[in-house]
Design a protein around this nucleic acid. Structure first.
Lengths: 215, 215
DNA sequence: GTCTATATCTCGATAGAC
DNA sequence: GTCTATCGAGATATAGAC
């Protein structure tokens, strides 16, 4: 064990900054975010942000890079996708929605980056693919295989992948709108999420499967 | 004709401010936007922004309200949805994607507002529904009817509507990501859009239709 | 209606005490 | 490692000339 620190654990503080920064960046974007807001949310002083991460830019990039790393490592690793296409599709939808549910700020941050032009996306996406393959890549490969074996209709794997993640992620990002338009989402968002899992699977499975195959 | 103005048409200037403000707000959000950027893009001075719209807040709200008005009036009016469900679905998908294509900044602005909490969404959404019904409301009604007549499987109209707009709008908002992952989207986005229209219709139609009905 | 100049405030970042 | 105090840049907004 190292020598005792003057005050609380430094790692703990850095973690609090990370989480606070993620939340604020996710809501307001890189330029809209205020260092004061991040400091307040982390329960520390503004100057301490600059002690850990010299500039706002570096803090933003650190958060961004960390989320990508975490996404590839924790989500992708647990994906098997070695069953029938129907099993794989349900598994992916369930896990993807669960992951986004637990990492909504990450999804919002990525969307903000896209809206702002996405200058950071290129390198990180490329790196994620180069290492172990992203969850999307895995599922896309499963779609391609199912098309080749004739398990599903001859759809474009890329378009299909886009349709799946659209159906799974979009509603989180427009949650304020969804809660205005759907009573269930407003009163019990978790119940709404479970209903959505089932709906997305049913529609997409029937939409992809060959006629004659039922659920 | 009214008396001649000192310089150029005032209406023209206000319009240019509107469009410039929309683009900047759409990219950076309400707080991230800079009045200087808007003025530059509109080709005028910063002070003139305050002459037309006193504050940044008022400019933002004016742009937001105008877009809602325009959306309900121009898009909703042209929707018929009086054919078979398949015809209605294809019609909606084509028109919705075309509308978002021509109003990408509006879509981005709405997403930014959602990400920031959506405090402006409630009243405007409520007002849009109260008047003539939004395009979404119309299509949702068509889904409900098709379920009742047995034309399609007994799906939840609200969930289905969400799946349709997710599949039609999400890819515009993450265009930077899509262009990294899909070669066609990077080289010819218009061709990609047309391919997407077809894909979304096919998957969703087969996903909703009763077995035995083909395209 | 449009500009220049300026007032006022807020933000990001640093210096230095503890 | 954490704070207070402060500097300087850049932001919104206003005043006043044209």
């Amino acid at each position: 064990m190292p020598e005792p620190t003057t005050k609380s654990e430094p790692q703990e503080t850095e973690q609090r900054i990370f989480e606070a920064a993620l939340t604020v960046f996710a809501s307001k974007g890189r330029d809209g975010a205020r260092m004061q807001d991040i400091a307040d949310r982390a329960g520390i002083n503004r100057a301490l942000l600059h002690y850990y991460f010299r500039t706002k830019q570096q803090l933003y990039q650190a958060v961004f890079a960390h989320l990508f790393q975490q996404y590839v490592n924790s989500f992708s690793e647990s994906l098997q996708l070695d069953g029938t296409f129907g099993e794989n599709l349900r598994d992916f939808i369930d896990r993807y929605i669960d992951y986004v549910r637990e990492h909504q700020d990450m999804a919002r941050l990525m969307m903000n980056e896209n809206l702002a032009g996405g200058s950071l996306l290129g390198e990180h996406l490329a790196k994620a693919f180069a290492t172990k393959g992203s969850p999307q890549q895995k599922m896309q490969q499963a779609i391609r295989k199912a098309v080749e074996t004739g398990e599903i209709r001859p759809v474009c794997p890329r378009q299909t992948m886009l349709t799946i993640i659209s159906s799974c992620a979009f509603f989180f990002l427009i949650a304020p709108t969804v809660k205005v338009m759907n009573p269930l989402a407003a009163t019990d968002f978790d119940a709404f999420i479970e209903a959505r899992k089932q709906h997305v699977f049913e529609v997409l499975y029937h939409g992809l499967a060959l006629k004659g195959e039922a659920t």
